[in-house]
């Protein structure tokens, strides 16, 4: 069973935005939606391994900064070419103003 990892403070992420989070030799993206919910996915686009942290969050979509491929960051589902492969997602919870991620 994997542990919850303290990733950041909730205020580290603006609404409708994301930040990069590196842990244990892996890289992730943590999102804050417009309705103040938090989500976590793998950090690299499944198309060409570009980090999503410089991408654009629109509603519940993250768009890759390199080729404009899109994912639903809540489910990781690939929505728009050139991405075909879904993005892995990771459970998130908020405790005492901190964002915790469970990394499998």
């Amino acid at each position: 069973m994997s542990d919850w990892v303290d990733a950041c403070a909730i205020d580290d992420i603006e609404e409708e935005d994301l930040i990069r989070f590196d842990h244990g030799g892996r890289t992730f993206a943590i999102y804050r939606s417009a309705d103040d919910a938090f989500f976590c996915t793998d950090g690299l686009c499944t198309h060409e391994q570009v980090h999503l942290a410089d991408g654009l969050v629109m509603d519940h979509i993250i768009e890759c900064p390199k080729h404009n491929g899109q994912f639903d960051y809540r489910t990781g589902k690939a929505l728009r070419a050139p991405v075909c492969e879904d993005l892995a997602t990771h459970p998130v919870k908020v405790e005492n103003g901190r964002v915790l991620v469970r990394i499998g």
Binding site: H47, E48, K66, H67, A81, P82
Partner: peptide, 10 residues
């Protein structure tokens, strides 16, 4: 050409 252009940007 969607894929070709993705490669052009990569």
């Amino acid at each position: 050409w969607r894929w070709s252009h993705a490669r052009h940007h990569t």
